[in-house]
């Protein structure tokens, strides 16, 4: 037994070496991407956490290590909590309206009718515009004196002018609606694809059982669309928690700080005030919050999917 085992092990390790040598060139396929992935994604993640432990100023030669002081300052930073609140409010409004609107439109466009393909293309169209363009349009859509919304409100509905962007209570919903206008086409298309994956027989069976429109939606569409919903909600959450350009261009964060977002605060801390250490702490905190919420979202929606 023992004598025969030795040469066997020898050949097997030989075999392993042979396969490895055969597999070695395969690394050439993944290496080019992995190089940039490591340099511009993996390394910055580690480095970002490290910088957040320094009082990092861009002009200095030797940076000053201060431990978790940046994080302690962050906890006491009223501005940080304010921009975090603004961002959360913006994200929640945008995601909820986006998901409801997208699912509603997708339900309507799922079956072909005259012009349904055209509407599909049209509704996604704003999504291909640059956020810079959205900003330029958005400024004039919400303008108090000459804006499009106030134009329709005053001339067609006879309502008084509203200072949409000047009111700290309305400015975030206004930015959220602008973002919905820009982005709802993407979840709409994903939902249409998801709805097509629900077997038509289920709807026919429900019809025979005498279920109404609402009943079929509640008991067939909604539970079966949950995996798609999970994907949409998570991607939307990640995208809109990082909102930057809409407030940056349209309101400049105002009035006061009412519409300043977390990413905007991060950007200004780093590239206006050059406090890279503190800005890194903001980034790490934001990332930590987002990862935790993503995991929570996953576990909640997973549970609801396995009904």
């Amino acid at each position: 037994m023992t004598t025969s085992a030795l040469p066997a092990r020898h050949t097997s390790s030989n075999q392993r070496w042979k396969t490895l040598r055969k597999q070695l060139p395969n690394y050439l396929f993944v290496l080019p991407h992995f190089f940039f992935f490591a340099v511009f994604l993996l390394y910055p993640i580690v480095r970002g956490v490290q910088i957040s432990l320094y009082d990092w100023k861009i002009m200095l030669k030797d940076q000053n290590f201060i431990g978790v002081a940046n994080y302690q300052a962050l906890l006491r930073d009223r501005m940080f909590w304010e921009v975090l609140g603004n961002t959360a409010e913006f994200m929640i409004i945008t995601v909820i309206i986006n998901v409801i609107l997208a699912l509603f439109v997708a339900t309507g466009l799922k079956h072909k009718f005259f012009g349904s393909d055209f509407l599909r293309v049209l509704f996604y169209a704003p999504g291909i515009l640059s956020v810079s363009v959205i900003g330029i349009i958005g400024i004039r859509v919400w303008d108090t004196q000459i804006g499009i919304i106030n134009y329709f409100a005053t001339t067609m509905l006879g309502l008084p002018r509203v200072s949409w962007l000047g009111n700290p209570d309305i400015v975030i919903p206004a930015l959220a609606l602008t973002t919905v206008w820009w982005t709802f086409g993407f979840p709409m298309l994903v939902f249409i694809a998801g709805l097509h994956n629900i077997p038509e027989q289920l709807y026919e069976a429900a019809k025979i059982d005498g279920a109404g429109h609402f009943g079929t939606f509640r008991h067939i569409t909604l539970p079966l669309i949950m995996p798609t919903m999970l994907f949409v909600v998570v991607t939307q959450f990640i995208a809109h928690m990082q909102v930057f350009a809409q407030p940056y261009i349209i309101t400049g964060g105002g009035p006061g700080n009412a519409s300043r977002s977390a990413t905007m605060y991060l950007y200004e801390t780093a590239w206006k005030f050059f406090r890279f250490g503190y800005a890194s702490a903001i980034a790490v905190a934001l990332a930590a919050i987002m990862i935790v919420v993503t995991i929570i979202l996953f576990s909640i929606m997973r549970r609801r999917t396995e009904y």
Binding site: F40, L41, P44, I282, A287, M290, I291
Partner: peptide, 19 residues
């Protein structure tokens, strides 16, 4: 690669810029 999808771009901005 999958894990990196979870990391928001915010963390990589400053180090990538400095690099």
């Amino acid at each position: 690669l999958l894990f990196s999808l979870m990391i928001p771009a915010a963390v990589t901005l400053i180090p990538a810029f400095l690099l």
